[in-house]
């Protein structure tokens, strides 16, 4: 049984694609056969983050319109054995995504034995974003600790509750997870940023992780390596914790409190 997980946020630039890449990689590293689909038709960049942009021949829209088979379009990831990327089209517009077409692609992935399918949603609340969440079993709501991001996440949660197939069928609802990204404990301490508790207080969705703000994410993106692969970085550790919690393991939140440098460290520059 394939689990379909949408990574969404409403707002742009909060870390959806970074999260999709790392989350999919993390599941694949645990041995699950995983596919990650870029729904951002027209503005694709999952392939860049995954470092497979030069290997894109066919894309999601080609598959939906029958111009290519799923096997032709799926790109095997260079880091993980079990991970495949289905890129978005750069040239077509979002109207090319039809509900029937997306449903067929997801069904075909199930027949191919994929255990997890990660849908990387575009920003906004229009067709691409709705298509990405329509068939979701679970949703990761990526939120930055600032009010506009929280507001947009709230909006997308409402849409998830209205437009997803699960909501419309009236059965078990989509399981929601809150992921706070670009978190800076120091700025929270200084009162410049919402704390993850504030975010959760407003959104009221169980928290699956807090990813610290880090320059290593930018470096990783530029190199085409998902952040979860950066050895010994806090970001990679935090994403691994997210995978652990997603799989039901117990992992306390890390990297959320700010420790002031001690007097010694301040005097001698540590």
């Amino acid at each position: 049984m394939t689990r379909i997980i949408v990574v969404t946020s409403g707002k742009g630039g909060v870390g959806k694609t970074t999260t999709s890449a790392s989350f999919a990689s993390g599941l694949a590293m645990r041995g699950f056969k995983t596919a990650v689909i870029d729904f951002d038709v027209g503005l694709r960049n999952l392939d860049l983050i995954m470092g497979c942009e030069r290997r894109v021949v066919y894309d999601l829209v080609n598959v939906i319109s029958g111009e290519a088979t799923l096997n032709q379009a799926l790109i095997k990831d260079k880091h993980c054995e079990n991970l495949f990327v289905l890129p978005a089209s750069q040239t077509r517009d979002k109207d090319a995504l039809t509900e029937e077409g997306v449903e067929k692609v997801l069904k075909d992935l199930e027949h191919m034995g994929f255990e997890y399918v990660i849908c990387d949603s575009p920003a906004g609340i229009e067709r691409g974003a709705v298509m990405a969440l329509t068939f979701a079993d679970e949703a990761i709501i990526v939120t930055n600790p600032e009010v506009s991001s929280v507001r947009d996440s709230d909006r997308i949660l409402g849409i998830l509750q209205a437009k997803s197939k699960r909501a419309q069928a009236g059965g078990e609802p989509v399981k929601e997870h809150l992921l706070v990204t670009r978190y800076s404990p120091k700025r929270v301490e200084d009162g410049e940023m919402l704390s993850y508790k504030d975010v959760q207080e407003i959104l009221r969705v169980p928290i699956i992780g807090v990813i610290p703000e880090s320059e290593s994410v930018l470096h990783a993106s530029n190199q085409g390596t998902p952040a979860i692969h950066i050895e010994q970085s806090e970001v990679a550790e935090a994403y691994k914790d997210v995978i652990a919690r997603f799989l039901g393991e117990d992992a306390p939140l890390r990297f959320v409190s700010y420790e002031k440098p001690g007097l010694f460290k301040r005097l001698f520059g540590g």
Partner: peptide, 22 residues
Amino acid sequence: RSGQQVYARGGDLVILAAVNPG
């Protein structure tokens, strides 16, 4: 949530969870 709207026509409205901004 933001963007959601509820209207109790002709009666009272009782809400037991947060009414978020928007």
